[in-house]
């Protein structure tokens, strides 16, 4: 899955980081799959529509997945509790959250080396991913069924800089996780400082390893 790794800072999910997938569960699933395949515990909080069948297609291990579909008023308590015990927490960004709570959450993330993935726009993220363009294939006018999807994914960093990547839906599915080989292109993209950072990451980068 080099395409998604290329546009993330550090070439993959960083321990203690927070990422947003803006209104796309597909992107969230693709981000969640990496740590899950590596054997980490993951959790999904406040996403009642999370599709387990799709999760399996992306290679997410359901034995190590915990779902809390309706945390309601206990959202903050549940998320901070889960940060302590699991590696990745996927959640829908709350409408209102006090800045002090955000700071506490981020400190906790860094301390525990966990990753927070949010659906929706969460301006405190290290990177906001969204599908800029999406093109479906296989569907006609009353004929066929959805088969392929070509997506242009944009990752916006807090600095305002953004990177793009174009990829097919099948690139995100299970197979590439196990057979990814670092390419010369990846080496070029990562600056030296980032490389060191990437080695400190909790699990193998999405690319390589």
């Amino acid at each position: 899955m080099p395409a998604l790794a290329k546009i993330l800072p550090g070439g993959g999910l960083q321990a203690g980081g927070s990422y947003s997938a803006q209104d796309s569960t597909t992107l969230a699933l693709a981000l969640l799959a990496g740590p899950s395949v590596a054997g980490n515990w993951c959790s999904v909080v406040g996403v009642p529509g999370f599709s387990l069948e799709a999760a399996v297609e992306y290679g997410i291990n359901l034995d190590r997945l915990v779902l809390v579909p309706y945390p309601e008023k206990h959202w903050l308590a549940v998320v901070s509790l889960l940060i302590d015990i699991v590696s990745v927490v996927l959640t829908r960004a709350p409408d209102h959250i006090a800045p002090a709570d955000v700071a506490r959450l981020k400190a906790r993330l860094r301390k525990r080396g966990a990753v927070l993935l949010t659906l929706g726009s969460w301006q405190h993220s290290d990177s906001i991913l969204r599908i800029a363009e999406s093109e479906w294939g296989g569907l006609g006018s009353g004929t066929g069924h959805l088969r392929t999807r070509r997506m242009k994914i944009t990752a916006t960093h807090p600095s305002g800089r953004s990177r793009h990547s174009t990829l097919w839906l099948t690139d995100l599915h299970r197979k590439p996780w196990t057979t990814a080989v670092p390419t010369s292109e990846d080496q070029r993209i990562l600056p030296t400082a980032d490389k060191e950072l990437a080695q400190k990451a909790l699990w193998p980068r999405l690319v390589g390893s």
Binding site: D63, L65, Y70, P71, V78
Partner: peptide, 13 residues
């Protein structure tokens, strides 16, 4: 304990 027994779930296909 916080949310009730049925609020924390695992899944199966």
């Amino acid at each position: 304990g916080l949310l009730g027994h049925g609020a924390v779930l695992t899944g199966m296909v």
